[in-house]
Nucleic acid binder design. Structure first.
Lengths: 222, 222
DNA sequence: GTTGTCAGCTTGTCTGAGGAGTTGATACGG
DNA sequence: CCGTATCAACTCCTCAGACAAGCTGACAAC
């Protein structure tokens, strides 16, 4: 018999399926380990590992002496996975939403430290656009965009941006590989313009310039 | 001896700490189970459960016969946790970013089915605003907002919105509990206005009205 | 050089034995 | 009647040992 996955993982999937099917409601107590083991036809330690895996995914919670309880009806969305599977267009539109709002807020909240950060990251990007290898250029570009979002001083927006970064990075790598002319290396002016608007404390202008730039990026990746 | 957490969880935390400290790089192979058990002074099955938990969190991956490998340097951000801990102001600004962009895109992509969805959810909300209990009203309100984002036909934006919903719901419950006059029940007009702009295929107007409404919501929750 | 074999490692699974914590029923004192 | 104490039965937690299953690199044969 060939088994693609270990028994413990199969058991975890089966438990997840039963939870999803409504067999056990939110907050309900699962049968004991020995009972479950008998039901699924596996050993007790296998059940324990399955439960432990779902505990790691924040679906189950076991309390010594009391039992195992359902604390979520399904596994929390794994954002890395969602972004990996999504169309790059959808991802870039999500990024646009986060970053234009970030630019808008940054225009009212930016500190002197944020402006200094803009200077550094823009200078880096300018240098990298000319002579650095692709990955340096990509990191320099992302660093500036991150500086903009950071200047919004909103923890949720920053965390959202960081969640998107790996997916965006991969897309940029793929694009630069296909596009020998590195056409995107020439839009330094657009980046300077965004920074200028934030520096000038003009929220609408900052948002507009950010939107303009990111729309162009999205279009170029189709 | 009093133990706050099970040994297996403590072992998982210890492994996570060591990974974070750079003891094992990305892709590196951990010592064998028996070795780890001896190092941490616990039984082999305890180590196995710790590894299984981190496998559930997509940090480790074990391959039979080969070993246990690091596949992520830290646990993926648990968005429920991030949103729970964040200031409600930051959360609502994130929601505003997502939803205004959603409204903008919806104005160009909405289908007849989306418009029908608007009619239904708006009617529900109108009824609930007058006489329904708090939780019905909250669900009706969220249903309309979700309909707007859905009409953008962008899987990432929809998923983002759904991630925010539980946190927003809790905030609304708390607010309605404290505010006997239910002041927010009277802004049905603002919702109709958003739907009208999307119906009229006016992206800028839809975004502006969405922003206006959500700014008001954010201000009222301070 | 290429291929086949295999010994020695690894993780996977089961079982049995206690330890430790929780819960609800029951008896007791007020 | 109510509050409290006790306790038995249940639960999960941890360990140890045994064997199965799978991978890897060394080494011999060709």
């Amino acid at each position: 018999m060939i088994r693609r996955h270990p028994l413990a993982e199969q058991a975890a999937e089966e438990l997840l399926r039963r939870i999803g099917s409504g067999e056990w409601a939110l907050g309900a107590k699962l049968p004991g380990e020995t009972t479950l083991a008998a039901q699924l036809g596996v050993g007790r330690s296998t059940i324990r590992e399955a439960v432990r895996e779902l505990a790691g995914r924040r679906v189950l919670e076991s309390r010594q002496g009391a039992g195992v309880f359902v604390i979520a009806l399904q596994a929390a969305e794994d954002w890395d996975k969602v972004l990996r599977k999504a169309d790059i267009t959808d991802v870039l539109e999500g990024r646009l939403a986060i970053e234009t709002e970030g630019a808008r807020l940054a225009a009212t909240r930016r500190t002197p430290a944020d402006l200094k950060n803009f200077r550094y990251t823009l200078a880096d990007r300018r240098r990298a656009a000319v002579k650095a290898p692709d990955d340096w250029y990509i990191e320099a570009d992302l660093a500036f965009h991150r500086a903009v979002v950071t200047a919004a001083h909103n923890a949720v927006l920053t965390e959202l941006f960081d969640t998107f970064v790996p997916r965006i990075r991969r897309a940029m790598i793929d694009m630069l590989k296909l596009d020998e002319e590195h056409r995107h290396r020439h839009d330094q002016a657009a980046h300077e313009a965004i920074a200028d608007a934030i520096r000038a404390k003009d929220p609408d202008l900052a948002a507009a310039r950010s939107r303009e730039h990111l729309s162009a990026v999205r279009s170029s990746m189709n």
